[in-house]
Amino acid sequence: MTDTVAPTAPTAAPSRPDPADRRRARGSGPSIRSILKHAVLILCALVMLYPVLWMVVSSLRPNDVIFRDPSLLLNDLETGNYAEGWNAFADPFSVYLVNSSIVVLGAIIGNLISCSMAAYAFARLEFSGKRWWFAIMLLTIMLPIHVIIVPQYVLFSQLGWVNTFLPLIVPKLLATDAFFVFLMVQFIRGIPIELDEAARIDGAGHPRIFAQVILPLMVPALATTAIFTFIWTWNDFFSQLIYLTDPDLYTVPLALRAFVDAQAGTNWGAALAMSVVSLVPIFLVFLFGQRFLLRGIATTGGK
């Protein structure tokens, strides 16, 4: 019915088309259709990615050309934007990259340790009120950070933690990213329990089963967690904006924001160049960790 491109198909066929006709229709139809399909898909991808490609190209153009040239053609390479952007502030941009890296690394280590421990308890141990705690854990995944940010800020400021990286890292050491606990619980449930039992017969207790049996087997889930934590923390703006006000402690998103906030005469070339720099780590993680990313969102529906 949908093979309308087959010109030989009899339009007024009294009964169902005979098998030979159908086969011919299928043979000729899909080839044209698939070309069309690919054309549409490529066009879609191009429209979507054009701004990003343009950003990369424009960061290599002189400032006065950027807004006049919508093409992706590069006549001559202008690396001045990168040099200017790198040194636009009191600190070189490398300081912000290092700051972001510290926060990201702390968050990853925190999430890996605390979430895997909690996940082991939920997946493998029996304890009173387990169903309730599990339900609470699931609910906290949905909790908007805004509901807790004000008292959290009061708490951390009384501890003297404002303008340190601690408010961004310590919560991760306490498994507050419940999404990853859930992801790991799902993963551990898929590991055959016979492996635990074999280890128990060998005299292993839970700490050893966790460390020597479960952890090595859940490396894919750990990788997914590490990669998502990387991307979310690297992109995070809200909590970094609130807790870091000292320019020496600025992370990459805060530094970029300072660029465009200087309303009078933003140096757009330099802003673009540093934006490109800030996206390189995400892009690299995407290139090398895609397998884990796709598996992660396909199984649990993360962002």
Binding site: M48, P51, V52, P253, L256, F259, L272, K303
Partner: peptide, 18 residues
């Protein structure tokens, strides 16, 4: 991959600047 990439970049300050 091509369609997925923007959802990784979209939350960043860099894309908002863009």
């Amino acid at each position: 991959s091509m369609f997925y990439l923007p959802s990784l970049l979209g939350a960043s300050v860099a894309i908002a600047v863009l």
